[in-house]
Design a protein around this nucleic acid. Structure first.
Lengths: 128, 128
DNA sequence: AATGACACTTGCATTTTGCAAGTGAAATGG
DNA sequence: CCATTTCACTTGCAAAATGCAAGTGTCATT
């Protein structure tokens, strides 16, 4: 299909802002993942999904422009990598990098808190 | 000072949206804390801060209208409680509830990830 | 060749964020 | 007691982000 979705940046700093808003590691992490969708995309990748339509079809109903933008940010920040799809020429699959995988404890902590605190939640795919 | 900052809601559901966007506990947790400021406020409360001006003066420079709005949401969702301030009549101090304290593992996981992945971050207050 | 599916992009309305100034009440100083 | 300062916000508005719905280009299928 079209050009690579990943926009490689010269001397890329893994999409952290040019200057940190503070030296706090929590703040820096939030600057990368602190929105309502990014961790859900990572959740799905942990669960084995890899194609754009897999991610779009998750139950939360992410908007396609938001998904595309988040995937680009995740590639740019080194959490995921896009690989050519074996199924469809010109298309990509998305996979977690080591850096992305290292967010697993964050996902687990959020999953556990949600299960303990929000009635009506349940784990359906036992990954996170 | 003026009326209580906490807006008590009839049959309050701890500020979870009326319907979950999915049964996923990660999604439900993100709906409560998935922005760039909420966890930083909780971080400061874990660190022992309790007054509005303490929170405003954190290094990240939160906007006052955002801080007020987040405090209201946190009270509404049961993570923190507002108590009358012993220092200043009509003013409140904010303190973590049990529910708020149970977010500690989320903060720790984010702190640890940030320290490992974002150069220039460091822990200054050894709470999270 | 026509049609359908996929991976987005686009235009625009709505919502959220955040700046800067302002407000009301309490505390402080003279 | 009055004036000033401080605190805890609120307000108005501009900018940015979000998200709906339609559209586009390419690949796969019929």
């Amino acid at each position: 299909m079209r050009k690579s979705p990943a926009s490689s940046k010269a001397r890329r700093k893994l999409d952290q802002p040019e200057t940190l808003r503070s030296p706090c590691p929590v703040a820096a992490t939030l600057d990368l993942i602190g929105d309502k969708w990014t961790l859900l995309i990572l959740r799905d990748l942990f669960a084995g999904k890899s194609r754009y339509r897999d991610l779009v079809s998750s139950p939360e109903g992410i908007a396609t422009n938001i998904l595309a933008a988040r995937l680009e940010q995740l590639v740019s920040s080194g959490m995921i990598a896009a690989r050519p799809s074996p199924e469809r020429a010109g298309s990509s699959e998305y996979h977690l990098t080591e850096r992305g995988r290292s967010l697993f404890p964050v996902l687990v902590a959020m999953r556990d808190w949600g299960l303990a605190n929000v009635p009506g939640t349940e784990v359906r795919v036992q990954v996170v």
